[in-house]
């Protein structure tokens, strides 16, 4: 009864639509990336220019700067989100204070559900130099008001802060789910051997945490590669190019400078990184499903 024809009919709509909206634009982008394609300067024409766009991307210091900044941003936010998330997960896995723990679980959903563009708006308000909450904390400790979003280093910090606020709950919820998967009797058997919390964590709980953690790390890396909304709203990549991550730089070249040939080449180069990440993700997590 499991006829190939039926299978194809079930698959056809999804395959057709994804080919149309996923693959066709991609091929179009490849085409554009191999041409002179500045829509603000149509007089230059739209001729093939081979790999000239790619060459200029590779020679473009700002592109490497944006890529470096994206990596720096990853290194700033991911370990922090991991550490805070793990702390929260262990806290919520604890036995005491059921009401507070239930409240915290509900609260964790809030940042995750908040529209990233709105996270950017909240960031603008919170880090405002005149009346922001951040400066209120600074003045509480006796400091002077700081122009957070006007200073290159502090602006990056402010953006990273909001990103950490939004995504720490993701780490926390995933690790909490993994912790609840630790068999209770295995944990209790281990407590007969040792009373040291660290050893219990390292040898009993950690192995259960590892798969979920890997999933989150890969997904977050891919997400930061395409991070746009919150940063765009909060700083537009500024001051200067201090918070111009790779997707913001690509957007600026494509839609404010309107050199879409160069922008397409940059977008495709960053796509290669995400495809590698996607491959790793699937290799690790769907082995048994696809076998």
């Amino acid at each position: 009864m499991w006829k190939t024809r039926d299978r194809n009919l079930f698959l056809a709509p999804a395959v057709l639509v994804l080919a149309l909206v996923g693959v066709a634009p991609l091929l179009f982008a490849v085409n554009v990336s191999l041409r002179q394609f500045n829509i603000a300067k149509p007089s230059l024409g739209f001729e093939w220019n081979g790999f000239a766009n790619y060459v200029s991307v590779f020679q473009d210091g700002y592109f490497w700067g944006a890529l470096g900044l994206t990596v720096q941003f990853l290194l700033m936010t991911i370990p922090l989100q991991f550490a805070l998330g793990l702390g929260i997960a262990l806290l919520l896995h604890h036995q005491d204070w059921p009401l507070l723990r239930a409240l915290a679980r509900v609260a964790l959903v809030i940042p995750l559900a908040t529209t990233p563009a709105v996270v950017g708006l909240i960031g603008r308000l919170g880090f405002d130099s005149d009346f922001g909450l951040a400066n209120w904390v600074v003045t509480l400790f006796g400091g002077a008001k700081i122009a957070w979003l006007g200073d290159p280093n502090l602006a990056l910090f402010a953006v990273a802060f909001m990103e950490t606020w939004q995504w720490t709950p993701f780490f926390a919820l995933v690790m909490l789910a993994s912790l609840s998967a630790v068999p209770q009797d295995a944990f209790e058997a281990a407590t007969l051997e040792t009373d040291r919390r660290w050893l219990l964590f390292r040898y009993v709980e950690w192995p259960y945490l590892l798969p979920g953690l890997t999933a989150v790390l890969i997904l977050r890396t891919a997400d930061v590669m395409k991070l746009f909304d919150s940063v765009y709203v909060m700083t537009r990549g500024g001051p200067g190019s201090a918070t111009e991550l790779v997707s913001l730089y690509t957007q600026r070249i494509g839609f404010r400078v309107f050199d879409q040939g160069i922008a397409a080449a940059m977008a495709l180069l960053s796509l290669i990184v995400t495809i590698l990440l996607a491959r790793a993700y699937i290799r690790i997590f769907y082995r048994e499903a696809t076998a």
Partner: peptide, 8 residues
């Protein structure tokens, strides 16, 4: 990445 699709 949305920017890849946004251009075309």
């Amino acid at each position: 990445s949305p920017i890849v699709l946004a251009l075309p």
